[in-house]
Amino acid sequence: MSKPIIEITGLKNYLGHQWVHTDVNLTIYPGEILAIIGGSGSGKTTILRSILMLQKPTAGKITVFGQDIETISDKAADAIRRRLGMLFQHSALFSAMTVLENIMFPMQEFTTLSKPFMHKLALLKLSLVGLPKDAAHKHPSELSGGMQRRAAAARAIAMDPELLFLDEPTTGLDPISARRFDELVIFLRDTLNLTVVMVSHDIESVKRCSDRVAFIGDGKILSLEPIHDLMKNPHPLIADYFS
């Protein structure tokens, strides 16, 4: 196997007077789609937040692109952030901007591309995630929840990140949109050679697109294997989850 893109060792998180993670060890390789599943409140999103440097872990070591995010300089951290894309659970689109401006926002901040080119690139991302053209000039509050999610996905891939984090991307989408979204994730991985880390509750979606699944419970990764093996795992928590 090639060099890991993310390596988490001994991650511990103490939040709200309880241990969310006691010992999380996880290695993610380039080009794979890794799903993180587990019961509500088991700390799936917290893992993402730790990797994204939104939350300082209580203990443990996380390396992203081979760099320890605990010890790197702010500049190096920014350089890493530029190579990441994140789709938040509640979309987190900037409500003051239109959808197109939302997608163009990171481009404007980080590149010096010409406006028409940026415009076209943003429209390309928009059509990639399957949004109709006339959604481009709408504000997020004028869109339905599913469309907001897709617009947020378009913003997440605006900078062609190498590493894409999805926090419950298909929750709240209708089955057809959810399937399209999964196809999109696989397509992006294949064409852009992305690495995708997704947190999901949608077993169908996990079945469709994940290469490996990390099951989190009791503050640890209980199992890390393809979904079909995971579903036969006799561990009581896992068996309970799929029953």
Binding site: T98, K120, L123, L124, L128, A136
Partner: peptide
């Protein structure tokens, strides 16, 4: 993909 998506890119708000 870019070629396929061409019609969508000609959109002007």
């Amino acid at each position: 993909l870019v070629v396929d998506k061409q019609p969508a890119l000609k959109y002007k708000a």
